[in-house]
Simulated assay, not measured.
Amino acid sequence: MIVAWRRHWPHYVAEALGLAFFISCASLLTVLLEHPASPVRQALPNEVVRRGLLGAAMLFVVVTIVYNPWGKRSGAHINPAVTLAFWQLGKVRLPDAVWYVVAQFVGAIVAAQLMSLVLGPLYAHPAVKYAVTQPKPGGEALAFAAEFIISFLLMLVMLKALHSSKLKKITGWLLGGLIALYILIETPYSGMSLNPARSLGTALAANSYHGLWLYWVAPPLAMWLATVLFRRFYHGEDLDCAILAGCGPGTSSPHSPEEEPPQYPDE
C-alpha cells in the first residue's frame, strides 16, 4: 500500500478531484434549477424540462472529467463500483484499487461539505436538500431495482465501448449521454446515484441516511454482475487499460513513455 501510494498518488488525487468536481457541479446546478428563489427555477416551472437541462449539463461535466489530462491520468473512474469492476477485470492491482476507492470517498465527502459551507441555506432548502440521493415515494425496493438496472446497463455500455476500437475514444460521451438520460427518466425513482461515494458524501452533508444502504449495494452488485457476464459471453478485442477516455498500446496511449498508466494487472 505504501509503495503504491508513493508511485501512483497523482492518480489517486485525480480521482478525488474528479468526483469532487462532479458533486460540486451537480450541487450548484441543482440549486440553480430547483431552489424557489432561482430565476431559472421560476422561468421553468416544468420539472421534466429542468431535469432535462440538468442531464444535458451533467453530460458535459462527465465529458470534461473523462477527457481532461487529470482524468486521462487516473482513468476517470470517480466511482468505487467502476474501480472494483476494473480490478475484477485484472486492469488495476488491489493496492491501487483500494487507494482509488479511498480517494473517491474523500473527494465526495469534502466536496459535499464544501458545498454546504459555501451555499449554506440554499443547499439546505427542502427543494435542494443537499442534492442527496434517497428513495422516492415508490419505496426502497423500487429504488434498489432502479439503481441496479441503470448501473448494470451503464457497465455493459462502458465495457462494450472500451473493448471496441471504434467506440473506445467516445466512451466518455456515451456514458455522459446515458447519465443525462438517467437523470431525465430515473431520478423520480431513486434520485439517480450509480455511485456509493457520491451518495455518502451528500448524505453526510444533509445528515440524512434514509435508504443509504441500497446505494452501497445495488450499484457495486450490478456492475459486478455485468462484468461477470461480459467476461463470460464476450469474445473480441481485449481491454487495453482502465481509462474511460480509451487508450491503446504505444503511441495511442494518453500517457508519456516515462509515465506508467493506471493499468496494473496482477501477474
Rank of each mutant, 00 (worst) to 15 (best):
P262K: 08
L33I: 02
A43V: 11
V13L: 13
M155V: 13
A203M: 07
F233N: 08
A26M: 02
M115I: 13
S24Y: 12
E259Q: 01
S24A: 14
V102N: 09
T227H: 11
Y123S: 02
G55T: 13
G176H: 05
N46Y: 13
V132W: 03
V40L: 03
M115R: 00
T64V: 14
H77K: 04
L204V: 12
I243H: 00
A81S: 14
F230A: 14
P36L: 06
S252K: 07
K129V: 12
E258V: 15
E237F: 11
I109G: 02
K169D: 01
Q42K: 15
Y123P: 01
H210N: 11
S74Q: 04
S24V: 15
E267V: 12
H235K: 11
A16E: 02
L178C: 03
L59A: 09
D238A: 15
V3C: 14
M158G: 08
K166E: 10
V106W: 02
E267W: 14
A111F: 04
F152D: 01
L142T: 11
G120R: 12
C241K: 01
L154R: 10
H210R: 13
M115D: 00
P39C: 03
A43K: 05
G191I: 05
V49C: 05
Y209M: 11
A161P: 11
A108N: 05
D266K: 13
R51W: 00
I179L: 00
V217E: 02
V31Q: 08
G248K: 08
T251C: 14
L17D: 06
Y123C: 10
R93K: 04
T83W: 08
V101E: 06
Q88M: 11
L32N: 02
V66T: 10
G139D: 05
N207H: 15
A143W: 10
E267T: 12
P219S: 07
G211C: 09
P262A: 06
A206Y: 01
A245P: 03
F152N: 04
F233V: 13
G55L: 04
R6T: 11
